[in-house]
Structure formats: structure tokens, C-alpha cells
Design a protein around this nucleic acid. Sequence first.
DNA 1: TTGTATGCGTTATCAG
DNA 2: CTGATAACGCATACAA
Lengths: 339, 339
Amino acid sequence: MMNNTPVTLKFLAEKLKMSVSTVSKALNNYPTINEYTKQRVQEMARDLHFTPNKSAINLKEKKSHIIGIILPNLLDHFFTRSIYGVEQFATQNGYNVIISQSHDDLEKEIQSANMLLRSRVDGLIVAISKHTQDFAHLDQFENMGIPVVYYTRNPSFNLSCHKVLGNTFQGCYQATKFLIDRRHKKIAYLGGPKMINFTHDRFNGYINALKDNQIPFSSELVAYTDFDKENTISAIKNLFANPENMPTALVAFKEPILFDAIKYLRSINHPNFDKIECIGFGNTSFISYLDSPPIASIEENPESVGENAIKLLIQLINKEIDIQHYQKIMVDCKLIVHG
Amino acid sequence: MMNNTPVTLKFLAEKLKMSVSTVSKALNNYPTINEYTKQRVQEMARDLHFTPNKSAINLKEKKSHIIGIILPNLLDHFFTRSIYGVEQFATQNGYNVIISQSHDDLEKEIQSANMLLRSRVDGLIVAISKHTQDFAHLDQFENMGIPVVYYTRNPSFNLSCHKVLGNTFQGCYQATKFLIDRRHKKIAYLGGPKMINFTHDRFNGYINALKDNQIPFSSELVAYTDFDKENTISAIKNLFANPENMPTALVAFKEPILFDAIKYLRSINHPNFDKIECIGFGNTSFISYLDSPPIASIEENPESVGENAIKLLIQLINKEIDIQHYQKIMVDCKLIVHG
DNA sequence: TTGTATGCGTTATCAG
DNA sequence: CTGATAACGCATACAA
């Protein structure tokens, strides 16, 4: 079965005693080629398992039909779900996707970027690492005319780039409002790392919901964690420190830290543990296995974020949108009430 | 900043008034090139942000430096963790990785395979879909001399392929032995879909552990599920149906179904619920949030499975192992006791 | 030490 | 309708 001369157009042409160009045209269904010739060529191609060499085509067409994605981590379901949205639409439009993880390491992110640049991807979708401050490795793409769409994690201060983001303000507003409607007066907010702009967007959603509903704000009910478990626990301790100002509800930046919080509160036998109602960003399927599950989840619709990113990117590739005409797209969250 | 003439070797050569080949050699540090010339070329290349075009190199070298991976699903942490093992070693050896999900759909798997074939990957690592019975789309690779390593999910009946597998027999044996050592006499086994060969390997581990320790086997203590929640619950019902033969411990094919089982047993207020000790394959970090967690987990070491797969693949690519000399590598599991 | 020529596999232009 | 030829960007054998 093993064939060592590669099956190329030339090889087919020799077999068929025709020219390479005729074979090429026949396979690409050129109208000028005789039907019978087409049939002969296509049959031979099938029999010999001819597979066009993408590198040759890329070189010729100056187009790779590849979209690059750089993201921090495939263990985070937000990202894997977002890939699903990207893939769907990319495939429909004849693009393949190369995924590269930065593991939240800048050096690795730079390497990934360079690799994708050498591969001459037609466009790039990127969620930057925690430590990305300098963007030279990503700016290269735009300098070569390759569009870049930042999604989720993006350079918040920079307006000169295309962005697709979850509307995390709206999500947090909605969650807080939901708790207010359930008659909670003392709603705590547990934020993420202060460097991440989402932390503040969500805080703004929280505080605006309070304000719009005449619930007084108390700074004792706000704390931050950098995702580290110890850190989360000390934040939670602070939130529940003052017996005069005890929260009855909690909105958390992300479900994993919410679970840590819940676990801690139960471990100390918090008096009103059963009454406390919690909501976090995420909506893990795992929730159904918890004994004291959050009352609701803020679903960030990662598939939709991914889909919006790829749609924008393809418009940029097709020059339906000018690359300099920077876009910002917000994808709404949805509150999912459990049970 | 935006440059529209692409920076190629030719472009550099013109700027430097040298020939393309000198530029090429200078950039590749040929010993025959004058030091000063090298410097000039390399400096210019840096200043103009020259990036070699991978398609051109692939075409020339007949090598893509790309490894393809086809796997069912990125939402399963077994696979994302295995990717980590692959990436590490691939990068070290100058290979990039293209990941493609089949979503357990044969049609999608075929498309992925064809895409990777057109990309002329240098090797393929694949975990087949649930429905893959015919292997023509994967056999193509070997026919073209491109090595294929099956990992985890593989054509069990077929000995003529390279395989890297978790030693799931050993893992299940060890888990069962652990429960026996804790004085359990009635240990139930909840298996996965019967089509998957791992189901039977694990069952064999279970039954051998029983036999080796003179624990009588009872077919009432064995049931199967296809991962569907309803299905899992009815399997569990059967396992716990006979009051004369009530299990006190349970070994499950995978943690998600184990969690469904635990949830069900609690929901019916099973009399000895607190006493039942469970073990599943997986070792999700989520376990720490459960109220009634499994007593232990069978860690399948996916990173190591991935690493073994890529190591074997690279040996095959380098022809250090003959492609026809089919290998089978087993990666041991490890029992992780919780709490 | 540098330059010229060729070819990798494909598409496209133009001539026949 | 078919074929010869050039070009895409790069590496390399060979010539100078």
C-alpha cells in the first residue's frame, strides 16, 4: 500500500499523458476543460488518493486559510467553549484554526505569536496573558496587514484595537438586581484581581444595581482575591467579619472562587449559612453536584463571544471593515437560575 | 507603520544589493558567509521585521514541522491535560501542534483528517470518535508515509497500529484492592459504554483484584452506563436493588458518572449512604467542593500519556523506529487518596 | 566568499 | 479545449 513517490499534479499528468495545467484545471472544474477529460482526471486523482499540498497553494495564493488563536489556557471552560463558537463559523468559511496556549506566560505568548506569523495566518484572535503589557509581538500582525481581534482579555487602556468582550457589567448588574428582588439588603461583592479590568466592570454593575434600587453601599461588603485559595478565604473572612453588617447574599467574580467561599463558610458553620444566596460568573455543569449550590449563575456565553470574534475577524480579512476602523463588540450575559 | 510590499529574501537582497542566496545563507548562519555580511543582513532583517514564510520552507523541505492532533472534545480535561504533555515535547523538538476536535462525530473526524493531510503534517496523534469503525481516513496517513499514533481511544481489535494507552486495568485493580484492604466485601463496578474497550479492561482489573483476594464475584454488583444521566441512574438502581447483596463500595468508570451515582444515592436517602466508599477514574479538582466526595481517585496521568504519544511519534518521524514495527505503550495510573 | 540556477507543488496567463 | 511558462518564497548544489 505504501507509495513513496508523492502524488502531485505532475505525477498525475505523467500518468494521464497530459499537461500539469490541464490536470489542475480539471480538478478545479474549469469550464474550459472537456467533460470527458475532467472525468478521467478526477477518477485518476481519486484512485491515487491525490491530496493537494496546502503549502504550495498558500505560497501561490498568499493566503493560508488559517486563523490563529492564542489563549491562556485550555483548562478553563470559558476558552474551550469559545473555541467552539470560533470553529463553527471558521469552518463554514473555509478557514482552519490553530490554537496555541500561552499558559499565561508572556514568553510563551510571544513564541506562539511568532509561530503563527511564520505560518502566515490570515487573522488572529487573542486573549492576552495576565502579564502582557507590551504588544510588539501582536502589533507585528497589523503591521503586516493581518487583522487581530482581542477577545475577553484585552489591553483595556488601548482603544486602537478590535475587541469582543462579554458584557460583564450587565451580567453583574442583573445578578445583583436579582438578589435585590429577592429582598436582600446586604449583598457582598467578591472581585477578582484588581489588575483585570473585568473586576471593575463587574463592580460597577454591582454598585449601579444597588444605587438604582436605593440599597445603601457599604465598603465592608466588597473584597478582592487573586484566585489563590488562601487569598480568597481571607477576603471572605473580611466580608463576613462584622456581625452588625453581615451579608445575606454574595456575588462572586468567578465560580471557582465562589465555591471556595461557600466551602469556607460551611466549614466555619456560619450561622445563617443555609440562608445565604450566592451567584458567580461561569455556570459550570458541576453545580448540580453541589450540596449548597449557588442560586444562579451568570452565563457568559463564551460560544457567542467566540462567534462574534471570528465574524468580525472574517469581515476584517475580507476588508468589509477597514482594519483601522476599530470595533468594540459586547456580548450580553444571561442569568441562569438553578433548581 | 503599515508596509505593503512583503519583506521577503528577495526584498532584503535588493535593499542590500546582494543575491537572494547570500541573504538566505547569512540568515541561516552558513559558515561560508563573511561575518560582516552576516551582520549586515541580520541587522536589516531585524529592522525590516523579516519573517520567513513557512509555506515556502515546507514546500522546499517537504516537511511541515507540524504535528496534528485529532481528539473528541476539548471540554474533557483528560484531553486538554494530554495536550499539555504533547506540546511540551513537541515545542522542544521544533514542532508546532494543530488541534482538531471531532466532537465524537465521524464526519467531522474525516474532515479534520483531510485538512491535516492537506497541511502535510509530519505526524498525527489521534483519539478516535465513539463512532469510528472504518479507518480509511486515518490509514491515508500511513500510506503516505506519515506516522500515526493512536492514544487512549483506539481501534482495539487492530494490532497494526501504534498505541499509547492508560493502563486502566492496573488502575482499576489498584482501586479495587484499596477498597478490599479497607475491608469491603461488596464492591460494585459501574462500567462505561460496552463498545469502549476500556470498559472491559477496567472490569478485568476489578475482577482480578477480587479473585486475587478471595472476594466472591457477584454479577448483581456490575452494571453499565453510556454516560447518559438517566442511564446511569437506572444502572445504579440495579446495583443497589437487592437488600441481601447491598454494595458498600463502588468503583466507577469515570468521575462524572460517579457523581451522578452519588447524587442519586443521596437523593433517595440510601440507609448506609455515609458508609459507602467510592472511587472513579479522573481526579477532578472539583472533588474538594463535594460534600460526599469519593474516597480516592484513579489519576490517569494524561500529561504522561500525551508525552509518550509525542515521543513515540517523533521517533517514528525520525525513523528511529520502523513505521511497520507497531508499538504499544501503557502508562500506569495512580491512586490518589483524598482528604 | 558570493552568485546563478533549479526545484518544491500549485495556479494563472497567454499562446496555440 | 489544451499546453507551455512564469511566479509564489525559500534553500541548496554548483559555478565563479
